[in-house]
Amino acid sequence: MKAKVCVFIVGAALWTNVQAAGILFDLRDTAYTSSIEAGSYEVDGVILSLSSPSGVLNQTTSNFGINHAGAGDDTAQIDGDAGAEVLLFSFDTSGVLEALNFSSVGGSDSFRVTKNGAGGLIYSANSVLPNLSFTASDVFEIEHISGNGVSFDSLSITAIPEPSSTLLLGMGGLALLSRRKRTHRIRMLS
């Protein structure tokens, strides 16, 4: 009976560890201004890397976007003031990109979201639910297509734990069970 309880407890611990974790990255959070503008933002152990080939990252309390390099574009939006701006982002883990949230989206605003430079969908909405899986080697791109520009407010992902971590935890649990059984047998023989 004790062995069954131990197996259940280890199984429950493994199941809890395997569960994916939902994470929200709020790009307007002023507590992280220096790290976001430097291109890195960590939440719950997951690192979001941000960059732009068309300018520098710009965050305010209500907006996040790009300032086009040397063109007098001082808005914290992804816009086309000095040419179409592009934001690149990636994660240091695997998971699913659940939602992208924007503000300042007007009737003529549109932007393209692609993964690894392929495909891509054009959106014109405050909330986008791409439901795209990714690995640590994948790069997403948000590109301004038309209109005055949008603020990239937040994104949500579901991080999926690495299989190697889960495997190590499971092996440790099995080793504990094996040791417990061996100790129990030795006591019975004594």
Rank of each mutant, 00 (worst) to 15 (best):
A3M: 12
A3Y: 14
K4H: 13
K4V: 10
C6W: 15
F8C: 12
I9T: 10
I9W: 10
V10W: 10
V10N: 01
A12K: 06
A13I: 11
W15T: 11
W15R: 07
T16W: 15
V18M: 14
V18N: 07
V18I: 15
I23M: 06
I23W: 07
D26H: 08
L27F: 13
L27M: 10
D29Y: 04
T30R: 03
T30S: 14
A31L: 14
A31K: 10
T33P: 07
S35E: 15
E37T: 14
E37N: 12
Y41C: 03
E42H: 04
V43W: 12
D44W: 11
G45Q: 05
V46N: 08
L48K: 02
S49K: 11
S51Y: 09
S51R: 02
S51M: 01
S52K: 02
S54G: 06
V56N: 14
L57K: 02
T61H: 08
S62H: 10
S62V: 15
F64L: 06
F64W: 12
G65K: 05
A69D: 10
A69C: 03
A71S: 14
A71F: 12
G72Q: 07
D73M: 01
D73H: 03
A76D: 07
A76C: 02
D79W: 09
D79P: 01
D79V: 02
D81R: 07
A82T: 02
A82S: 15
V86T: 15
V86E: 07
V86S: 08
L87E: 04
F89Q: 00
S94R: 03
L97D: 00
E98T: 07
A99F: 01
S103A: 08
S103Y: 05
V105P: 02
G106H: 04
G106K: 02
R112F: 04
R112H: 04
N116K: 02
G119L: 04
G120Q: 04
G120L: 05
L121N: 10
I122L: 09
S124T: 03
S124Y: 00
A125T: 11
A125N: 11
L129I: 08
N131A: 15
S133A: 11
S133H: 06
T135M: 03
F140C: 07
F140T: 01
F140S: 00
E141I: 00
E143C: 01
E143S: 10
E143Q: 09
E143N: 10
H144D: 04
I145R: 03
I145S: 02
G149N: 06
G149V: 05
G149L: 05
V150E: 02
S151M: 06
S154C: 08
S154R: 02
L155S: 04
P163D: 13
S164F: 11
S165A: 13
T166L: 12
L167N: 09
L169W: 12
L169T: 11
G170I: 07
M171V: 13
M171W: 14
G172E: 03
G172S: 08
G172W: 14
A175G: 13
A175H: 08
L176H: 06
S178V: 12
R179D: 08
R180M: 12
K181F: 15
K181D: 06
R182F: 15
R182W: 15
T183R: 11
H184W: 12
R185D: 13
R185T: 09
I186M: 11
I186F: 09
I186L: 12
R187H: 14
M188K: 12
L189W: 11
L189T: 01
L189I: 05
S190K: 13
S190W: 06
